[in-house]
Design a protein around this nucleic acid. Sequence first.
DNA 1: CGCGTCGATGTAATCGATTCCACAAGGAGG
DNA 2: CCTCCTTGTGGAATCGATTACATCGACGCG
Lengths: 338, 338
Amino acid sequence: MASIKDVAAEAGVSVATVSRVLNEHPSVSEDARARVLAAVASLGYRPNAVARSLRTDQTRTLGLVISDVLNPYFTELARSVEEEARALGYSVIIGNADERPDLQDHHVRTLLDRRIDGLLVSPTDGGSPLMLDAARSGTPMVFVDRWIPGVDVPVVRADGRGAVRDLVAHLHRLGHRRLAIIAGPAATTTGQERVAAFREALEEHGLDLPDRYIGQGDFQADSGRRVTERFLDLAEPPQVVFAADNLMALGALDAVRARGLRVPDDIALAAFDDIRWFVHTDPPVTAIAQPTGELGRAAVRALVDRIEGRPPRSVTLPARLVVRRSCGEDPATNRSRS
Amino acid sequence: MASIKDVAAEAGVSVATVSRVLNEHPSVSEDARARVLAAVASLGYRPNAVARSLRTDQTRTLGLVISDVLNPYFTELARSVEEEARALGYSVIIGNADERPDLQDHHVRTLLDRRIDGLLVSPTDGGSPLMLDAARSGTPMVFVDRWIPGVDVPVVRADGRGAVRDLVAHLHRLGHRRLAIIAGPAATTTGQERVAAFREALEEHGLDLPDRYIGQGDFQADSGRRVTERFLDLAEPPQVVFAADNLMALGALDAVRARGLRVPDDIALAAFDDIRWFVHTDPPVTAIAQPTGELGRAAVRALVDRIEGRPPRSVTLPARLVVRRSCGEDPATNRSRS
DNA sequence: CGCGTCGATGTAATCGATTCCACAAGGAGG
DNA sequence: CCTCCTTGTGGAATCGATTACATCGACGCG
């Protein structure tokens, strides 16, 4: 592959001049510029990004470590992150942690070794030593969706409390009184917050959330299935199951179907995170929709602000309830958009 | 960030010795090794991958350019690619082309600039000049899922012909005679092949595929919706719509639902690519399942073979039919697994 | 006892870019 | 006509690693 030296030789100038032409440095003669450009074209020369990064100490690359690529919420997030980054002149390298702290650490380490300019993380757990180190060390960092408490890093996320309150009101209006939740891992902020928001909302209606109605999931479909089976085995099963993410809702659907029961007649279902397929499931699933694209874009802007020396800001955007039929018919508040 | 020089100074040895310790070169004394390791630990030193890549001329990184991250088929593919690559000691950088040739070129160029060791591509079109160049030039390359005819690059893909034949037999048995297809872009091999396989299978049953029953889609949901609407507007609408990918099937579902029609009573639906949600849609969708994970792994192995100087092999794996209820009940051949 | 061999180590070249510094040529101003 | 800038250019240092080559003891063998 042709290097800058080859171009210099071909154009009959020094490598310094070639570099100046390529970087649009003002003091280059028209003549030299033309010859260099011609040489570049004829050799099909492309600057070696590795060498450039070594010299300039910047890669114009962002790292994004997400909890699970197979989760449509995160793929959508990843997509918007890449889009905004590209618009700002950065590339993105995605690391998929699969909800495993060890894999998350692997990717953080690899990205740091590559000297990415900044790191976007949606942490899988409460923070490994490596993660805390990374946060404290020089690399600019921003948390997205989830965060690690007590670490001084900007956070871009959605606040679901209002939407959860709307959801519980909706469920209460439909006559449901025994409400259960499939929680996410307690080590994640979203895992905790969604349970807390649910409990608070229940209290507003004088309902409580007994331990047997809290199932411990891990944001994966299988755990949703297991927890739902346990709910269905209770002497007094819940009337509603609220899954803290879309994959666990999928698992819940599996479990209900395996028993030959029907949603919402036998048991109602709602989910955190809205995805396109929820419109066409049987029945369409009532869900809390996050402004995913906006979150991704805001996260990139915050990170690039840090990288380029501007003060970054944490951002919190509201989520909203999308009512469908999985909790029963509710003609009073049909705010469904589909 | 500490460099190898700092480590050398701290350990009281030369940088060469540090490098030797880190690369497990045999001739280093126990004493020196211990001192270097101690220095590495105390400084929290991590080798700079950028500098190493420049010197060794290898990045231990693979590029993966896929047509659309939001398509669950491709995210699953991406996941298995990353997994296998990691097992073989490589990282993966994913570029999402969003079915846009210009974006595809952008990512190929960026990846080449970064001097990735090899490139995995699922081409969005028939091959831009850049793509053809890349294929001819030195960088090892493998096509996955789709390929570009006439280019000498190994291909790892699924053969859907057998499964399409099974599908058409299934449809014929159910009494369907007017079958339509929502095709993918003619510029992609999968776009063409699926139509050809469908037509061949129809011919075996003495049916033909008139032009009005071929809708031109682009593998995105919106196009599935538009094409389906056009089918429904025909004087004699088809009895079955076969979507050439899962997103267009989603769009078809949207269109059918918007008219207040029902699947499969008013019109039947089948899709190429099976995804988890198809089990829970209304009704569950009959689909052709590709061995996605195996494809991803085989593609990585083929690419790494090329990179490491072994002869790479093209791989073709069979897809299979998964019957569900979206085409009507067929007690005779219930090979559904769900 | 002298020489060849081997193990451990350091010096320095190298990868491909960017960029500081020196310098030459040419024009402006005194 | 002699300085003093300005503009264009090249030489060489630099980034952080790897690695070829040189060196220096120690050891074994004839």
